[in-house]
């Protein structure tokens, strides 16, 4: 039996519960998260919200300024807001350049050197631009046992890129990821904010085709200019 590509959801899909993928992923349940973040305690980053990233966008304005201000209220000191603020900056600009780090430092009244030291510690901050779709293939042990290296190789071949580079059309970057906590559904691949599970090498062309054709019909995906 070939496992389904997306999270199989739940054994209930063969019986008790008929779930769509959106229901399994929680999208239907969560609904539209407000751009300004909702309750301060729950204000996180929602990287799917912006269709286009603008590396020159202001830090921060409009709904993003509101979200930043909420984040700062959650901690007894400003410094603790650093990680969420960097994430927010990346949500807007697509990556965290040295200059962005400096701007964040100023916002939080920290030194630039300090912010750079922290930002470089964490892998989720892209230090340079990435393709529209950042494809992270887990090659750690559980996935590795089930063919993750083939999946990675196929992604590289099909997108025609080198590991960590951006493809010619600007669409894809393929990187190796450490365990994504989906080990029971190997190979686990994260593309932007979405998990693809049970991926085998043969599935790769179809996944890429879907991404290439993906139209911005998702109402939640907004352009920063709106």
């Amino acid at each position: 039996m070939k496992a389904p590509k997306f999270n199989p959801g739940w054994a209930g899909n063969i019986g008790e519960y008929e779930l769509t993928e959106a229901e399994i992923r929680g999208e239907d349940f969560v609904g539209e998260r407000p751009l300004e973040g909702g309750h301060p305690s729950a204000s996180a980053t929602y990287p799917y919200m912006l269709e286009t990233k603008d590396p020159k966008a202001k830090l921060f304005e409009g709904a993003y300024l509101e979200r930043f201000e909420k984040i700062v209220t959650r901690y007894p000191e400003m410094r603790a807001a650093l990680l969420p603020t960097l994430s927010l900056a990346q949500e807007v600009r697509g990556y965290v350049s040295p200059q962005t780090m400096d701007e964040v430092a100023e916002l939080l009244e920290l030194s630039s050197a300090y912010v750079r030291g922290v930002a470089t510690f964490y892998t989720m901050y892209n230090k340079s631009p990435v393709g529209k779709y950042l494809i992270q293939v887990c090659t750690n042990i559980s996935c590795n046992l089930c063919g993750a290296e083939d999946v990675l190789r196929t992604f590289l071949e099909e997108t025609g890129t080198e590991l960590g580079e951006i493809s010619g059309d600007g669409c894809f970057s393929v990187v190796e990821a450490e365990c994504l906590a989906g080990c029971g559904f190997p190979t686990c691949v994260q593309i932007n904010s979405k998990y693809f599970e049970n991926v085998i090498a043969e599935d790769v062309p179809e996944i890429l085709a879907t991404l290439r054709n993906e139209q911005s019909t998702d109402p939640r995906k907004k352009s920063l200019k709106e």
Binding site: R25, G26, E27, F29, V30, G31, R33, G38, H39, S41, A42, S43, A44, T45, Y46, P47, Y48, S87, Y122, M124, L180, A181, Q190, S193, K194, Y195
Partner: peptide, 25 residues
């Protein structure tokens, strides 16, 4: 919450909001 868990993060965010609303938090 682990940064990669965008989906879990949203589910949790919604639940936290509802709990605040209901006076549980």
């Amino acid at each position: 919450c682990r940064g990669e868990f965008f989906e879990a993060n949203q589910v949790l965010a919604k639940a936290v909001e509802d709990a605040y609303e209901a006076g549980i938090l």
